[in-house]
Design a protein around this nucleic acid. Structure first.
Length: 279
DNA sequence: AGCACTGTTTACAT
DNA sequence: TATGTAAACAGTGC
């Protein structure tokens, strides 16, 4: 469940559930997900630490512990479950964090793409992978027209690919990018340096608007094998183009098209997001 | 049955 | 350097 709004909602849920608790025991059943430590070190560093706070940077979750930071990325299908000990550990549960109140935090990830990094201090956290090269948070004041304009100039990639590039703005993924570009009336394959100032301004505006609204609605739930414990949002009810192939465009009523941009499935309206309108 | 797809990122090719 | 493609993995749908 991993674009910015989904991660933000996970963050909020976890904060209310596990903040201030101690991690009493750590089990990692799929060791390769730990990226910068051995399993042994990871386990020893985390056990007996108190969870002070949970934050988010782009699509990364950050668990602030007394002596360090656990950075978690959900990639395609990572989920956290806060459960009691009766929960049946299925084969897709790759980590178990036992907590001081008798509950446990489970990490489930069917495709095993998710990652853990652990850092001892803030310096290391921010100056090593993966947070090092992240671009601006979309809600920061610095994410504005002039910043984006600077980042887009001299680039010859489709605008969609650049908006998915986390080193420019952190948090957009395949769903929300399509929605932002539709609302901005920009063809996803439009070469980035050809965007007008007005278009760049709209990208900034709708990025903020779409992400804020999605957070409000608890994110988007598509592949719906949602568990009772899973966080599931309702922003899918407000999607205008993504996964709407052959549905009528809300503006012009023509069929939404599906294509591929940068290897990613891409939905757009040919009429409302024309490619050949350079004046 | 087999292939193409999937809310992501990166390592490697050209 | 910049851009494009494949790979990590498991499941679903045509």
């Amino acid at each position: 469940m991993p674009e910015l709004p989904e991660v933000e909602n996970v963050k909020q849920a976890l904060a209310s559930q596990i903040k201030e608790l101690y991690i009493t025991e750590v089990q990692v059943r799929y060791e390769p997900m730990i990226k910068n430590l051995s399993y042994e070190d990871f386990k020893h560093k985390l056990e007996q630490q108190r969870i002070k706070e949970i934050s988010r940077r782009g699509k990364y979750l950050i668990f602030h512990l007394e002596k360090g930071y656990l950075v978690s990325h959900l990639r395609m299908e990572g989920r956290y479950y806060y459960t009691d000990s009766s929960f049946e550990i299925n084969p897709h549960i790759h980590s178990i964090f036992k907590l001081s109140n008798g509950m446990q935090l489970l990490y489930q990830d069917t495709r095993k793409f998710g990652t853990f990094h652990y850092y001892e201090d803030e310096q290391a956290l921010n100056h090593a992978q993966p947070l090092l090269k992240l671009g601006l948070e979309p809600f920061s004041p610095e994410f504005n027209e002039s910043y984006l304009k600077e980042k887009l100039k001299n680039k010859k990639k489709p605008i969609k690919s650049l908006l998915l590039d986390q080193s420019i703005v952190a948090g957009l993924g395949n769903i929300y990018v399509d929605e932002v570009l539709f609302r901005s009336r920009i063809h996803p394959e439009k070469i980035s340096h050809k965007l007008t100032d007005e278009e760049i301004k709209n990208v900034v505006k709708y990025t903020v608007e779409v992400l804020e609204r999605a957070i409000e609605l608890g994110g988007t739930t598509i592949r719906t094998f949602r568990s009772q414990h899973g966080v599931s949002g309702t922003y899918q009810d407000e999607l205008l183009v993504h996964q709407k192939e052959n549905s009528p465009c809300v503006i012009c009523q023509r069929e939404i098209k599906k294509t591929k941009v940068g290897g990613r499935g891409t939905y757009y309206c040919e009429t409302c997001q024309p490619l050949e309108t350079e004046q």
